[in-house]
Design a protein around this nucleic acid. Structure first.
Lengths: 192, 192
DNA sequence: ACTGTAGCGGAGGTACCCCTCCGTTTCAAC
DNA sequence: GTTGAAACGGAGGGGTACCTCCGCTACAGT
């Protein structure tokens, strides 16, 4: 309801280097990895990631000594974007703010899917990211519930799973996707 | 409504061999492949599949010359099981029959997920399987709609995507999964 | 029981991936 | 501009997967 006041910065201490060329390579690696993981899942080739980023394999390993390190950085990056998105919709109407944020949540899911395969659910970073995300998005559901627009026998976690699931499937076209998502959200919505 | 009268047999001409040892190996390969694909996705190692099945790699390649052939057989096998399941629930109450079948649909989704990655959506087998599955499951939704238990501004395809999506995600536990699925189906259900 | 053949397993060539190591390049502080 | 340290790229050793090929095995029909 008020602009987010909790920290939206780095979830884990970012290892982004200071030198210009190094920082550029770091960013290129994160972007390439997100792309590769989205396309090939958790087992994407790291050499392919380095190729996409236009850097040598050695550079990849210096920045991310293990595959897990790369996953964590890509994932944290996505979560940060999602947290920022929550602040951006905070001034809209309750239900519209919620659904707008859930739309942005779609993109996050693509990365999340691959990351799930690689990182243990109980890992520290997952915990931190979940906290961060719930702190950012949770109030959006709270507002809708307080306004009598959303059922109260569910929590934010339920909502995310529902939306994540629906958006994680493929559809004939965008029209069908929106229709099915609307049906799912009809299960969430209450007269208002 | 009446027991299924359409063919529930092989969707594609099965290449299952006649000789006893060969047939056993064929079945073991299908089972091992389903397991491996569920676990590792479309890029599971074929040598691993052969190992799980307890056969030589040569045997795998004789039965399934290409990775695609193996996928198609595993997939067709699953669809056949799903079609049979529709016949088995046909004598229950409309809404209960529908949800019972959708529960079985969960298992199918695990395989489907991997197969999607490997097979083109427009492939002949996908088309045939979809027809077969819709013919089997579609009447279950029709019945529920006719009984005023399900909204009529959606079709069977929408329902499958919705359920497939929800069940394709992970949950904290079975209780949450059932709760979220119930919310989604609340969007489908109409007063009754 | 005999026997022809369908079926079997796995060795091995090729290709790709993982990850380390180190000689070379590039930055930035002076 | 000089220079030292940080960063770079990619060669290369070890491992695994793909797929073919062929000598061996075991089934089924007589």
């Amino acid at each position: 309801m008020t602009p987010q006041s909790f920290p939206v910065g780095e979830i884990v201490a970012s290892r982004r280097p200071h030198r210009k060329d190094a920082a550029r390579n770091y960013d290129a690696l994160i972007a390439a990895a997100r792309e590769a993981f989205a396309q090939h899942g958790a087992e994407a080739s790291l050499e392919d990631v380095a190729r996409r980023a236009g850097v040598g394999i050695g550079t990849l390993y210096r920045n991310f000594p293990t595959r897990r390190d790369l996953f964590e950085s890509v994932y944290a990056d996505e979560v940060n974007a999602l947290v920022r998105a929550a602040a951006e919709v905070a001034d809209r109407e309750p239900w519209e703010a919620l659904t707008a944020w859930l739309k942005r949540f779609t993109e996050y899911m693509v990365t999340k899917r691959a990351v799930r395969e690689a990182l243990d659910d109980e890992s520290e970073i997952f915990q931190a990211c979940r906290d961060s995300m719930y702190a950012a998005g949770g109030p959006l559901l709270d507002r809708a519930q307080a306004a009598g627009l959303a059922r109260t026998d569910m929590d934010f976690s339920d909502l995310l799973r529902l939306v994540a699931g629906v958006l994680g499937t493929t559809f004939d076209d965008d029209v069908q996707r929106d229709r099915v998502l609307a049906i799912a959200l009809d299960g969430v919505r209450t007269g208002g």
